[in-house]
Write a protein that binds this DNA or RNA. Structure first.
Lengths: 254, 254
DNA sequence: ACCTGAACACCGTTCAAGT
DNA sequence: ACCTGAACACCGTTCAAGT
């Protein structure tokens, strides 16, 4: 949302460079040629300034990447999972899908994301929302926090392995195409030495599919629920009525 | 095991450089100063050759890192989880702990690990073992493969977030120390804007602990089991008797 | 406050040459 | 087969200077 899409090389007289322009340039280069292509010099050239002008806005390259990671995290759609009327499992699913969509759109940025601490305001806001959601699901505070970590580990872990599997820099091919490529590769597994792997080739090729992403997420949620409540696992749990709050945890409402 | 620990700068006349010496040097530099310190020139200097001599053994820097990732994966202790007499959950746990120990010992190498495809022979062997283990647990082939992916996503995702949280290059501080550092940081969370996060500070500080690592793993396994069998979740399932094989999946034994 | 020119100390990689 | 010297085309970052 904060990135006005049409990130093109500027033309006309320069008035005032902004941090966002620098981040736009960095993201474009990252999308096109991966981390190697997103050099300070390359970014500067893209926005039409000398390399060292970047240091007016950021203390260094690492700070540019960190700010970019934060901005990408800020683009996650909170509305999709903030609606407390919806069943909480649906809300978690919506969050998981949204984060994946947004990050796989920028494969080159995924490494920056997970390589940094993700302790900025957007990361905190996301964490807060998820804790609230899990409180709605009647998890006790400790389990909720642990479940939140488990969720983020799963989401980011999946995405990291997914983009690493694509191998090439630049934008990701469509999901079906990547699955097909993987199938060709896994079909070559020698069945005499790796019988189980060879037999599982089709499933393994499908690891990067949305379907398997959700399958894993559901196993995770099953495990969390089973442990923490005792509610039947496949039941739709609509969560708490809107505005209501579980036993003293979280903010009190007047 | 293949790295003879005492990776010191060579002295005396050079006879024959080996790939392993190069990988040792790369790992040492990675451990000391992170990815930036592990330059081709730095590696070459450490083994006592000119920078371009490295290209006799590897086609490029990326290939060095890829080979190093493979070697580290090969150091995972298979005995710990290959024993089919032990309950399968114990075996999975042993694998998860071993991988974590081995990778957190080299924080600088974790990024290389998950940034590459992990499609080498050691990765395949590990995957094969895990599929076998899950077959022992009576999962059907498709669920077993999916569960295997879920497991690796969790293990590598946890480790990536754990080392990223440490922030600094070089070796990781002891677990307790890192938890303490995180607690200080999370205690500063403004309770008015992020009430759930502020209340969960102690649990969040503990995210990098072995205990929470295992908690997440157990939720995962619960979710997998609940879905795939119907065996009571907290029961110890010793798996199949040694040498026996579930209904036609995997290698037939004479 | 914001930007530049020039420089410094590095990179990864290639190539022709040496043994 | 294995290694080197020298070079090429880059890096990130600093500093003094300009507006």
């Amino acid at each position: 949302m904060s990135a006005p899409a049409g990130s093109q090389r500027r033309r006309g007289p320069r008035r005032a460079l902004t941090e966002d322009e620098i981040l736009d340039a960095a993201l474009t280069l990252l999308d096109r040629g991966g981390p190697d292509a997103a050099s300070v010099r390359g970014i500067a050239a893209r926005v039409g300034v000398a390399p060292n002008a970047v240091y007016t806005y950021f203390p260094g390259k690492a700070a540019v990447f960190k700010a970019l990671a934060e901005r990408l995290l800020g683009e996650v759609d909170h509305d999709a999972f903030a609606d407390r009327e919806r069943p909480w499992r649906e809300r978690v699913e919506a969050l998981a899908l949204d984060v994946r969509d947004r990050l796989t759109a920028h494969p080159g940025a995924v490494g920056l994301m997970v390589g940094n601490r993700m302790d900025g305001p957007h990361a905190l806001a996301l964490n807060e929302r998820l804790l609230q959601l899990l409180a709605d699901a009647r998890l006790d505070p400790v389990d909720a926090a642990r479940a939140s970590r488990l969720f983020f580990v799963y989401v980011f872990g999946s995405i990291v392995l997914e983009v690493a599997g694509a191998q090439q820099t630049g934008r990701l091919a469509p999901e079906a195409e990547r699955v097909a490529t993987r199938l060709v590769a896994f079909s070559a597994t020698p069945a005499d030495r790796f019988p189980y792997s060879a037999a599982a080739a089709t499933t393994m090729a499908d690891y990067v599919s949305t379907e398997q992403y959700l399958w894993g997420l559901h196993r995770l949620l099953d495990g969390i629920i089973e442990r923490s409540t005792g509610v039947p696992i496949h039941a739709d749990d609509p969560g708490l009525p809107k505005g209501q709050n579980p036993d003293g945890y979280g903010p009190k409402r007047p």
